[in-house]
Structures are given as C-alpha cells and as structure tokens.
C-alpha cells in the first residue's frame, strides 16, 4: 500500500502555473483580466535532514508541542508585482502574489 502511494506521487517540489482571473484571486478585486498564478507543489520526502529524523524520534518527549518533522514545499522567493485594470477601470498592483522559486524548507 505504501509503495503504491509513493510511486504515484513522485513529482518533486516545483513551480507550477495556473491561469486565474483577477476575481478568482479572492482578494477583493473585481476584474476579468487573466493573470498567471505561480505556486509551489510537490513532494519533499527526498530532502529530509537529520534534523527531521531526530525531531520525529524525540516527538514523544516534547509533549504535544507543535512541531513539524517533514520539510514543506513552499516559495523561497516571490514575484515582485503584478498589475491589472479592474472592471471599474482602476489600476491595482499586487505584491508577492506569485511564487518565483520553490524549495523544501
């Protein structure tokens, strides 16, 4: 069962694209302009460090503290700005909307 799942999701953490309209961003803007949303997705199992292994093993002794002993696929840097014209013909600029680099952190 376990190997089957492991074989299924083998994509390592990477940058992916999605085309969304401004309204679909759900940031409170109303606009039909399409922007490119770049996000991070994928597995990070390959980049477990000694830290993660040890942390997992000492988990019990930490008594319910919030800990994460697996690296997470997250943006390590963001794209600067994206600007668009909304449906009321006002320009807006959003900062750090899209990821520009991903990493297992």
């Amino acid at each position: 069962k376990r190997t089957k799942r492991a074989r299924k999701v083998t994509t390592p953490c990477s940058l992916l694209n999605l085309e969304v309209t401004v309204s679909q961003l759900e940031l409170g803007y109303e606009g039909d302009e399409t922007v490119l949303f770049r996000y991070c997705s994928g597995k990070c199992s390959a980049s477990r460090r000694n830290y993660d292994i040890t942390l997992a093993s000492v988990k019990k002794r930490l008594q319910g503290k919030k800990i994460r002993h697996n690296p997470c696929c997250r943006p390590t840097s963001y794209e600067e700005d994206i600007s668009f014209l909304d449906n009321n013909y006002k320009y807006h600029t959003i900062k750090e909307l899209s990821a520009s680099q991903c990493g297992c952190v």
Binding site: E19, E33, T34, V35, L36, I82, S83, F84, L85, T93
Partner: peptide, 23 residues
Amino acid sequence: CLDAAKACNLNDTCKRQRSMYIT
C-alpha cells in the same frame, strides 16, 4: 483588449514592464 492584457500577463517581460509603468 482583455485578451491582449491576458497575453501580456502570461509573458514575463510584458507583465513585468507593464507592472512597472502602471506603478
């Protein structure tokens, strides 16, 4: 015009330069 904006947003150079002048 909306299509043109989309095409620009999907091109990195155009998106960046457009953002720069709008800002």
